[in-house]
């Protein structure tokens, strides 16, 4: 049933009277459109191109390297979305508009969705043939992704996002690898559950940058170590 539904939808997209989305499709005839056209498309969809709402779109249509939208990403991306009743989306701009709005509203509540969006941002932001994201750019994305209203990275005691950005600025000199990017979210999710960082231990699989961040947090007093009373073991 799903197969046929998809088929109809695909046909529908072609047959349907062209609406505002046509503009995008038309440009996609050249296989790839750049940021300028994407911005126009975001206006059509009624989302903010300058904040995290745009990242939600990135995840749906698989926007890739340097914010390029491909025909493949666009069609397959929309085709693989399902509405709340479990049927394929209607292929028109209205449905898409509604759908993306609901996704944006889900984002703060749905950790799995956030993770997908978060990971897509890395792919969308980096340059082709390069495996890393420049630090400056990564920092800007973190700041946007960890927006307090969406996915806050702070607790009532500690503002981790702020600390992380300071740490990046002062101590980290390299680019951000995919692994570091992905692990930062995993780490962030843990820190908001335990802001004493008691969950952390050097033996765990965290990347070195995160190990060093934890130590830095303790040294600079960003985080108060939970065990102040444990004395040093003195070797006689």
């Amino acid at each position: 049933a799903a197969e046929s539904a998809r088929a109809t939808k695909s046909d529908g997209l072609k047959r349907q009277d062209m609406d505002d989305e046509d503009l995008v499709i038309e440009e996609l005839g050249t296989d790839m459109i750049g940021p300028a056209s994407i911005e126009k498309y975001t206006e059509t969809l009624g989302i903010n191109a300058l904040n995290y709402e745009f990242f939600v779109l990135c995840e749906i249509v698989q926007i890739d390297e340097l914010f390029q939208l491909t025909r493949k990403g666009f069609t397959e991306g929309w085709m693989s979305q399902w509405d709340k009743r479990g049927s394929p989306l209607e292929a028109n701009i209205e449905a898409h508009r509604r759908y993306i709005r609901s996704r944006i509203e889900e984002l703060p509540k749905d950790g799995a969705l956030f993770k997908k969006v978060y990971r897509q941002v890395f792919l969308a932001g980096k340059e082709p043939e390069v495996k890393t994201l420049p630090k400056k750019i990564a920092m800007a994305y973190w700041e946007e992704l960890f927006t307090p209203t969406v996915h806050p990275w702070k607790t009532k005691n500690v503002n981790f996002l702020e600390a992380w950005l300071v740490y990046m600025e002062e101590k980290w000199t390299r680019n951000v690898s995919k692994d570091m990017w992905n692990q930062t979210l995993e780490f962030a999710n843990k820190t908001v559950m335990d802001d004493t960082l008691g969950f952390w231990s050097e033996d765990q699989a965290w990347p070195g940058v995160i190990d060093d961040f934890v130590l830095w947090c303790r040294e600079t007093g960003v985080v108060v170590t939970a065990r102040p009373n444990v004395g040093m073991q003195v070797d006689d």
Binding site: K131, T132, S177, K178, D179, M180, A205, W206, P207, G208, D211
Partner: peptide, 10 residues
């Protein structure tokens, strides 16, 4: 070792 694992991940 962790650093080397990271390099291999990258």
């Amino acid at each position: 070792i962790k650093k080397c694992i990271e390099i291999l991940l990258d």
